[in-house]
Amino acid sequence: MITTFLRIIKYGFLSFWRNALLSTATLSVIILALLVFEGLIISNVLTKTALTSLQEKIDISIYFKNDTLEDDVLKIKKSLEGLAEVKKVEYISKDKALEIFKEKHKDDPAIKQSLEELEENPLLASLNIKANDPQKYGIIADYLDKTDFKTWFEKVTYAQNAIVIERLGKIIDTAEKGAFVLIIFLALIAILITFNTIRLAIYSNREEIGIMRLVGASNSFIRGPYVIEGIIYGLIAGIFSVIIALPIIYFLSPYIQIFIAEMNLWNYFTSNFIGILIYQLIFGVALGVISSVIAVRKYLKI
């Protein structure tokens, strides 16, 4: 049993080594396929980060009239937090607003001076509302429009930005769906190409498989070395795909940061290196083994 297993492993390596040209060709295709997978993982992270950062920028702010009591504002905050569509409500008091304003303009002496001349804080208290889903801002705005507290509102920013927010919401939604479809599509292509390559490699061995059958080899003894070869393909291709990606990502990372400020791709890649490597190895091995098993099956019927 163990001898047979060791022989299968030996023949897997031997066949990989002796068909060096075929192995290299097959390996190259699997590496390319895995690079596509890697690209998909990364582009998925990129779109997610880009979309979240966009979503973070969308909000509705309610500015309250000067004479509104803080208790009333907090009451509104509580009622808003009860809404299913609302993710977060932030209360910015008059004092806090002033603080933020001062901080923002600390380098501008003219504003600093004019603020000091004012006896009273000119800024308004506000509630900053973030929705779970950018599509839901309309519902929140409707709610605000119908509420009894409306008399306290000085202004609601949604009204001004309604069109932009709505459009942005739709774009984000479409982008998410589009990316998903694209990922499935590309992954499918990569899988099919790998499968076909391995199938061709085994097709060129079909006579050998027939001979083995005639000499009295059992199916598992014939299939075994191909499975081992599939594993070798997967492991080597997995490692190579990650190594090849390293310099590419190092080079691209600064350019990506220009588009998405929150995204440092190089840091992401290096800090998740082991995870990505394991992921690639699993994918490579699974692809290699499954393709081999399916491809060999056809020639085992002699």
């Binding site: 001898t3 047979t4 022989r7 083995m212 000499v215 009295g216 080899a217 059992s218 003894f221």
Partner: peptide, 11 residues
Amino acid sequence: AFALEVAGRPQ
């Protein structure tokens, strides 16, 4: 050797 190996004969 292959014919012996497939029959599971020892090394």
